[in-house]
Design a protein around this nucleic acid. Sequence first.
DNA 1: AAGTGGTCTAGACCACTAT
DNA 2: TAGTGGTCTAGACCACTTG
Lengths: 244, 244
Amino acid sequence: MAVHESPDERLPRYQQLRDDLIRRIGAGEWAPEQAIATEAELSQGYQVSIGTLRKAIDLLVADGVLTRSQGKGTFVRRPSFDSSLFRFFRFKSRSGEVVMPSAKILNREVVSPDETVRSALRLEPRERAIHLSRVRMIDSEPVLSEEIWVPREGFEPLAKLELDQFGDLLYPLYEKVCKQMVATATESLEVEQADQSIASLLRIPVRSPVILVHRTALDFAGKPLEWRSTRGAAAGFQYQIEIR
Amino acid sequence: MAVHESPDERLPRYQQLRDDLIRRIGAGEWAPEQAIATEAELSQGYQVSIGTLRKAIDLLVADGVLTRSQGKGTFVRRPSFDSSLFRFFRFKSRSGEVVMPSAKILNREVVSPDETVRSALRLEPRERAIHLSRVRMIDSEPVLSEEIWVPREGFEPLAKLELDQFGDLLYPLYEKVCKQMVATATESLEVEQADQSIASLLRIPVRSPVILVHRTALDFAGKPLEWRSTRGAAAGFQYQIEIR
DNA sequence: AAGTGGTCTAGACCACTAT
DNA sequence: TAGTGGTCTAGACCACTTG
């Protein structure tokens, strides 16, 4: 049975508005980077005052779903991944600039996922997944090793695409080729010691510390679209946080 | 020359209000855990409408400075350190419960700080600092090693206090004995390999991965009160984050 | 000039807490 | 019952962007 989220009458109006706006964004009524209806239109449409509508939008802006721009409008925000843990690997090219690593797919196969992947992607027992192995490089030197799983259902085109057609960024590819849009993600960080294969790939000593980042990427409805684990040398990694 | 932050007339009223409320909290007009003046009183006092005042308070609530409680009032929040990176060490006692490690001061001395500490605490060239070495334990087993520096000025009482009088928590001590209140902090995380002394203290192999957390603790005015570095075994450490 | 979000008003009524 | 913050209204005027 499908889960039907009916608007809870007991919730404050501005929270109901937020939920309905998320629903409409998820349904594709407004695409990423596009302006949603104006505050005046929305407050009229919902029959609430402008203040109440603004409070609903405030919540979505705080959640990173929308951004406002005075004089221009309110826009559906594409997740920027500025806060990704990756950012805290200090990748520098030989010339000293900070650069984004290029990517190369090493392997792709359709698999029956193990229990970890199945539960991360919330797959049914017999559902299959597409598994990608990827290496990311700077100046042709490998710096990150990635294992990526997506559900076969909804990502079928990826099973056939030529490996050299994947490009450096996967999420634009998911969007263009599979019509799947990543809205948010959660990441977790832990530390392990390099085994033989990671050590030789990253050219670091066996048993030296490695940062392991797991990421679950979700669409607007909260459905998992991708699960990945990324490994990189811990040397030079530094992460910062505010406490309040 | 002292920095005088005069309220910027060009800023929106609600931001000016926020700044003035922070000033009054920092000046001790309202103590932590105590209720500030009511919204009605404040909006009258500042001669702004209730909506504008509430927007200022919204900002302070979002910043973690205040908490609101319907029917009771608005309170100055004591920082909880719930988001501290420490939380992601999975400390368990022998019986399996999650516990807070106890603390023991190993050494205390008044020192001329090195450049790192001096700049973290923003000390003048000749100013001195109090240095504490502390170990934190669960079931008498050391799990964290801490090096802590505070400015001598303002923390003089700590230079004389008996070492067994420090207790497990330093911030309440700073507050009670030194009248210094920690309002916020920043932490950074990196990974290193255990040297001989850390390895034997934490009872882990030499060169195994160690999490190193640096923390700068600030008062309400943003003045650094404490700088500390904490080391613990990386095994079992896991940190999580949301991306949006 | 027209249209957008940003700021601000001066209230009203409700839900919750304390006495 | 009195007092608190929580929600909501129905506007007004301002600052900024675009044609």
